[in-house]
Amino acid sequence: MTGIVKWFNADKGFGFITPDDGSKDVFVHFSAIQNDGYKSLDEGQKVSFTIESGAKGPAAGNVTSL
């Protein structure tokens, strides 16, 4: 699925993605970002991701920028 990064705190390594389908915002951890180098996201960035079952509920996985 796709969405827009609502916010991401690079110091803490997590944030939230707002899915394009209008569903509830999804937690994203830096370890789910699939790019080389520094793993961070920018507010407003368009991303593709999967929904994984995290310890505290749904979380984004396999996050790639579009």
Rank of each mutant, 00 (worst) to 15 (best):
M1E: 05
M1R: 11
M1I: 10
T2F: 09
T2S: 08
T2M: 09
T2Y: 08
G3W: 01
I4L: 08
I4Q: 08
I4N: 06
I4W: 11
V5G: 01
V5R: 00
K6G: 03
K6A: 07
K6R: 12
K6E: 02
W7G: 02
W7E: 02
W7L: 03
F8H: 01
F8G: 01
F8W: 14
N9G: 04
A10S: 12
D11A: 15
D11T: 15
K12F: 09
K12Y: 10
G13W: 02
G13V: 01
F14Q: 03
F14E: 03
F14L: 05
F14A: 02
F14T: 03
G15L: 02
G15S: 01
G15W: 01
G15V: 02
G15C: 01
F16L: 05
I17W: 01
I17S: 00
I17F: 01
T18P: 00
T18Q: 11
T18H: 08
T18V: 13
P19T: 05
P19G: 03
D20E: 08
D20G: 06
D21E: 06
D21A: 06
G22K: 07
G22I: 03
G22H: 08
G22R: 06
G22A: 06
S23F: 06
S23P: 05
S23Q: 08
K24G: 11
K24L: 10
D25G: 05
V26R: 02
V26M: 05
V26N: 01
F27E: 02
F27R: 03
V28F: 15
V28Q: 00
H29L: 05
H29N: 04
F30V: 10
F30R: 13
F30L: 07
S31C: 08
S31F: 05
S31I: 05
S31V: 04
S31R: 10
A32P: 02
A32V: 10
I33L: 09
I33Q: 03
Q34K: 13
Q34P: 04
Q34G: 08
N35Y: 12
N35K: 13
D36K: 12
D36S: 13
D36R: 10
G37P: 09
G37W: 07
G37V: 09
G37K: 10
Y38K: 13
Y38V: 12
K39Y: 08
K39G: 07
S40L: 11
S40Y: 13
S40R: 13
S40H: 15
S40C: 15
S40T: 14
L41D: 01
L41R: 01
L41M: 05
D42G: 13
D42W: 14
E43Y: 13
G44A: 05
G44S: 04
G44P: 01
G44H: 06
G44D: 04
Q45G: 07
Q45T: 11
K46Q: 10
K46H: 13
K46P: 10
K46I: 11
V47L: 03
S48F: 14
F49I: 02
F49P: 00
F49G: 00
T50K: 07
T50N: 09
T50I: 12
T50P: 01
E52M: 14
E52A: 10
E52C: 12
S53N: 14
S53D: 12
S53T: 13
S53V: 14
G54S: 14
G54E: 10
A55L: 13
K56N: 12
G57T: 05
G57P: 07
G57V: 05
P58C: 09
P58E: 09
P58S: 09
A59Q: 15
A59M: 15
A59D: 04
A59T: 14
A59E: 15
A59Y: 15
A60P: 01
A60W: 02
A60Q: 01
A60T: 03
G61M: 15
G61T: 14
G61D: 07
G61I: 14
N62Y: 10
N62W: 11
V63N: 01
V63T: 02
V63K: 01
V63A: 03
T64L: 14
S65P: 15
S65E: 10
L66N: 08
L66G: 06
L66F: 09
